[in-house]
Design a protein around this nucleic acid. Structure first.
Lengths: 225, 225
DNA sequence: ATTACTAGTAGACGAGTAA
DNA sequence: TTTACTCGTCTACTAGTAA
């Protein structure tokens, strides 16, 4: 989101525009934003154009409300601040082993993915992926991780099929190096996928339903990644 | 803090500039901020001028660190996001406008009530009360509000008739300051009464049956109330 | 009162370039 | 390579004002 929109949207959110329509004149908004009535009016039109805001333009007073898209953008910024102030160098995610759909394995075993894993994370994933259903109390932490820049594993095409771009985050499970892999075009999910050099189920003697803790490395990446 | 500085400072914080000096060239910062090397260089000079940043300008690479002043400004923004997303300071009650029995108006217009409203809520109710039938799913939230300490409006006697003690809770309806008034000896009710400085039906262009949201302020009262 | 257009202006930006 | 100057362009702002 453009920074000028972020500031305006945040102030509207503070006026209560997240859950409800609020009656705010362009003059009032201008005062809140430290700008003129005219500029605030224009800003509202821009935010409407960007679909961050919807409006009910009554005869007397306009009423505005932040859209889901707008709330999502604000939440991304919130997560950036959480990374700054709450999470220092790592975060622990608790969850349970789940079998999932087994699709991850087929994807991860593709050579172009494998080669990139080795180049960027310094290990070749042994098997497919280990699915972990993250505990509800840690889901917001998972969202913070998802919004961080990770190791980029580029997508490719093969046999007419598209393999999407994936983000990988260094992590540890029971002191074993591993990585969380997140498809770029993923929505809100409560399950994360782990890849590791070893066969995790066998090496750690874990089975579906077991509780595990995954420690995700949050130290900033060096630029060449 | 000027919004253009806030954005830059946040990105520097995400690069690790809060606790340590970090080596970031103006080109790298420009890339992170989506601007040119020249503009990033200028931005760093401005942030230094504002005392949000200190710099160790080495021969090859500059190293920058966010000052305590800068961290404080970032924390203010973080707190704004916390207010937005961790809202424990207010509760939203949804409901429909209802005409009610019109009794509230007669009571509230009594001078002893009016005087106390002005003394404690800093406004004189324009007319009587606006009745709102609270949605079933929010009734438990209304009960929470009813059980909270509010502004006490004392009762009195007049012409042999008793006017009871009333509790008032600061609230907002479409960003307009108002108050919920609750007679002390009231049983379970699904209707709440609002008072406001303005004629709410006219000001907000609302009529019976319209859906509204009332945001009740839950911040603790200062002792003199 | 409102919202929002047009026009004029100040300031933010990047290209070129020096140190 | 760096940082950061000058300068031309262009965008974002406000004043005036219409609806």
């Amino acid at each position: 989101m453009d920074e000028k929109y972020s500031f305006s949207l945040r102030k509207i959110a503070l006026l209560g525009g997240i859950n409800n329509y609020i009656a705010v004149s362009s003059r009032e908004l201008g005062d809140a934003l430290g700008m003129s009535q005219q500029s605030a009016s224009k800003r509202i039109l821009e935010l409407l154009e960007e679909k961050y805001l919807i409006r009910d333009l009554g005869a007397r007073r306009q009423r505005i409300k932040i859209t889901d898209i707008g709330v999502e953008e604000l939440r991304k910024e919130y997560n950036e601040y959480r990374r700054i102030f709450e999470l220092t160098d790592h975060v622990t995610l608790h969850g349970k082993i789940s079998s999932g759909m087994g699709e991850g394995g087929y994807y991860i075993n593709q050579k172009p993915y494998m080669d990139q894993f080795y180049a960027k994370l310094r290990f070749k994933p042994f098997e497919g992926t280990l699915n972990i259903k993250v505990a509800v109390e840690d889901l917001d932490k998972l969202e913070v991780v998802r919004n961080m820049p990770g190791h980029v594993i580029d997508g490719f095409e093969k046999d007419g099929r598209t393999f999407g771009k994936v983000m990988a985050y260094r992590a540890k499970i029971q002191n074993l190096d591993c990585a969380i892999v997140v498809p770029e075009r993923s929505h809100y999910e409560d399950t994360m996928e782990l890849v590791c050099k070893f066969h995790l189920r066998r090496t750690l003697s874990i089975k579906d339903g077991d509780d595990v803790a995954v420690i995700v490395d949050l130290t900033p990446l060096s630029p060449e990644n």
